[in-house]
Design a protein around this nucleic acid. Structure first.
Lengths: 215, 215
DNA sequence: AGCGGTCTCCCCCGCCGGGGGGAGCCGGAT
DNA sequence: ATCCGGCTCCCCCCGGCGGGGGAGACCGCT
């Protein structure tokens, strides 16, 4: 039996969800919260498997309520965020906060109960558009970026990395315990191989190619 | 009635899936492919709503088969990728290729048919771990990055952007139709506000802060 | 023994970049 | 009317940077 806690500020929505979910033999609504602040205490007491969380609520919104809930209740229930539009900016924040999935308010009853069963089971549920966007961004930066720049020698790569850390030739020389003249030679090679004019452009190429990464 | 095409090189797996799916009144397996190369032609002929695609297949793997399928068959069917491990590197490539979701081979029958219904319905299905990772990466770069750097004036921001494009002071002056001396003044202000030593470090800060973005 | 690639170091030179200071113009706030 | 901040331009100074050329040491390959 999957226990569900509903958090929504509108009584009508809560009632609708409760009726739909209780109609399923394997689901039971164990409680309802009308405000984000009520969610964590109620969950601690009722120990639901899944919390249906509205994103927009007075007091504490669904995002912060989710953070608070997952940080305070052990073991944490799954959170299924209920939203009106699938392109909502809240989507990413909610995932970041630890939500397992999303439910559109305009979904059919059948989809809703399926969604609850899925997240209770440990799966995640998203909208195609959101997933596609996430995947593209991720793939761009993590699978394609690694190494599409000319073959630099080990030393040259080391030098480029230090240039991209903002060091001057003198500082690089100090770091690598070689003469500044030597560093100049390597820097010259790097600039030539990357076909750029100065160290600034070299650093740009280093970032753009993924040779070094932000953060 | 949801029409399903199964693509897997192992006969046993195909049989298992077929039995499980055909047991559902609203699902029907309309065909099977034992190789990635067979998928697109079969899909063009049978017009399934969902294709269950194994990632690892001889000949053409599931990823390329997905790309080919979605690029050649109109309207494109939904693709549900079948995999053994949820941390598979293929996950991101498959999403990039246009897959709608993933199915673990060790899933229970009930989950599998739910998954098929979901993707047929236009939803997406992922593993919690994968979604979490995607969301974190995305959120880091897109929702937090925008503007955590000192207040630059419009002109200074413009200058910084051009510096980060690899332009010299002279080129920036030309672009903005002002004197090189003026550019030097602005550059000086930028360096001071960012508390950095030279334009290279300024560009680094621009990238690290998200003021400019790779690609 | 040769040879090419890499890493190391050196010299000269020209220029761009950056610091300091000064100044005029404008628009908005006080 | 005054002041302040942003944008514009100018001066001098100099140090780091980048280009050119040259050279020696070590390595592995042939």
């Amino acid at each position: 039996m999957i226990k569900v806690l509903i958090a929504d500020d509108e009584r009508l929505v809560r009632t609708g969800l409760r009726v739909v979910l209780n109609a399923e033999p394997d689901l039971t609504v164990v409680g309802e919260a009308a405000d984000g602040t009520e969610v964590a205490p109620l969950a601690a007491e009722l120990r639901p498997d899944v919390v249906l969380m509205d994103v927009r609520m007075p007091g504490m919104d669904g995002i912060r309520a989710t953070e608070h809930l997952l940080g305070s209740v052990q073991p944490p229930p799954k959170v299924l965020v209920v939203t009106t539009f699938e392109n909502d900016d809240y989507v990413y924040e909610a995932l970041r906060a630890g939500a397992s999935g999303f439910l559109l308010k305009r979904s059919r009853a059948e989809e809703m109960v399926q969604a609850v069963r899925l997240v209770a089971n440990g799966d995640s549920l998203l909208f195609p558009a959101a997933v596609r966007e996430l995947a593209l961004h991720h793939a761009e930066r993590c699978t394609k970026a690694p190494l599409p720049l000319p073959r630099l020698t080990d030393r040259e790569g080391e030098i480029l990395r230090l240039m991209a850390a903002g060091l001057t030739n003198g500082e690089i020389a100090e770091r690598l315990v070689v003469s500044p003249e030597t560093v100049k030679t390597h820097v010259g090679s790097v600039l030539a191989k990357l076909r750029v004019r100065d160290r600034t452009q070299a650093v740009i190429v280093a970032y753009e190619s993924g040779f070094v990464r932000p953060r």
